[in-house]
Structure formats: structure tokens, C-alpha cells
Design a binder for these strands. Structure first.
Lengths: 117, 117
DNA sequence: TGAATATATGAATAGGTAAACATATGTTGG
DNA sequence: CCAACATATGTTTACCTATTCATATATTCA
């Protein structure tokens, strides 16, 4: 039903434009969607999330796994935290991070499936 | 089974780090994944994709729907094309764009579900 | 309490990128 | 063939952001 063009005529006079405009999800939602994907669009953050797909890890674990500067990792964790893509749990002087919910897991899996075909 | 910490001990000596490292998907794949999300992370591109979720549209339709400069739309369509997120079909002087496959549709839906809860 | 460890954060810098403008390419109809 | 229309693209500019360095905060343990 969707994704089909119903008669073409001259460009911009098919009624399609108006129809699509009306069905349009709110701008705010689309802005949030772009924002969510932006959070997932950095190599370092993807590596962090991929690692967390396997296990809950503390910052210094991640520093080892990624072989990166602790500061860089913390900065990216902050981005992930702010976007509620990861959650954390303090235990003494360690902070353990994990993926926030199954939605995030699905997005990552779906994305991985796509790029690996 | 996954996502569980099996004994903690001193940071970096749990065997977890090595285990996670070994299971690690190839760097190239993770780079592609970040790249895919990057393509989906721009407001204009999300608006384009969201419109294409409803119908196949030509460039001038999109220019109207988005109410944007034709040049800006074309530039973003190029990004989407290069990433094989959209496909196109020429018909005379018009070029009709549509989402490339169901994987993309799923990613968008999943993302939308997440941001709308 | 003080040293060591774990994490967070402010500031500076380098690299990337979306939008606008101008222009080129390609297609149709008269 | 020529004019009008549809689309693509090179360039410039302004903005954004990931990393690094330096430092602050917080917690444990001897």
C-alpha cells in the first residue's frame, strides 16, 4: 500500500506532496530520531556499544578493550549517558556501564545485520 | 547469558576484557556500522527518508515536502545514494527515489519507536 | 590521613560537514 | 534546434565535534 506512486502527471501536482506532508511525523520526533542516530554514528561510541553488547563493563575495562585514552572514553560515555543509550551502576570507585534497553540492542543488531548482509 | 558479569576482582583482571576482545566484531564492520548511522544522523536526511517511507518521490516533490533549496536536497540525496540507503529510478527528466530495502525501513521504524516510546 | 586508583570534565585544537550560491548536465516539447 | 525544466555538483563558509592534555573529584586501603 505504502511506497507506491498513484499516478504521476506533472511534478508537484499529484496530490502526493500534500498527502505526504499531512502524514508527516512531527518535526520534533524526526529531530530526536536524527539525534539518536547521531549518537550511534561515531566509531568510538559504536565500539563501546558493541563491547557492552557482550558484557557489562567498567570504564577501565573499556579503556583496555578499545585501547584508548581514558579521557576520550569518558567523554564518549557521557554522550551515551546523556542520550540514555547506556545506563551505569557505581560500585566503589568503579562505574559499570551497560546498554540501556532492548531497543538499543535491536538497533545495533539490525544495523550490524545490514552492514554484514 | 550475555551481558552478565562473572566475578569482578581487580579491574582488568577478570578475563572479561580478553573475552570481549576475542568476540569483537571486525573493526571494518564496526566502522561501516558507524558510517551507516552517520548517514541516518542528519535532520534533513531523516526527513527525506521519513517522506520516502510513505511514497516514492522525485526530487522536486522532496523539495516541496521539505521546503528546502533544491541544491541542499540533491546533496543529501547523494549521501543517501552513496550509502545505498536509497535507490533511484529515472523517468524522463525526473528521478524517483525510494528506500533501498526493508532493512532500512526496519531501522527507521525501530528508531522511531524508540524516540516516541 | 595520605597515596594510589578510577572516573569525570574544562579548554584548546584539528578535522569534518551541511547549507547556500553559482553553474553544469541532461531531458522534453515546441 | 532552442527554451524551459529537473537534477547534479564544485566551492565557500560557518558550525560542530572527537581527541588530547591538564586537572578535578571521589573512593579505597594501608
Amino acid at each position: 500500500m505504502a511506497n507506491q506512486r498513484i499516478g504521476q502527471g506533472v511534478c508537484g501536482h499529484t496530490g502526493m506532496v500534500e498527502a505526504v506532508k499531512k502524514e508527516m511525523t512531527g518535526e520534533a520526533v524526526l529531530r530526536d530520531l536524527a539525534e539518536l542516530f547521531k549518537v550511534l554514528s561515531d566509531h568510538t561510541r559504536v565500539r563501546i556499544l558493541h563491547a557492552l553488547l557482550k558484557a557489562e563493563l567498567c570504564v577501565c575495562d573499556l579503556v583496555e578493550v578499545l585501547d584508548m585514552n581514558q579521557s576520550a572514553v569518558s567523554h564518549q560515555l557521557r554522550v551515551l549517558r546523556s542520550a540514555k543509550v547506556v545506563k551505569y551502576r557505581k560500585e566503589g570507585r568503579h562505574v559499570f556501564y551497560s546498554l540501556d534497553d532492548d531497543h538499543i540492542v535491536s538497533l545495533l543488531q539490525q544495523g550490524l545485520d545490514h552492514v554484514m548482509e
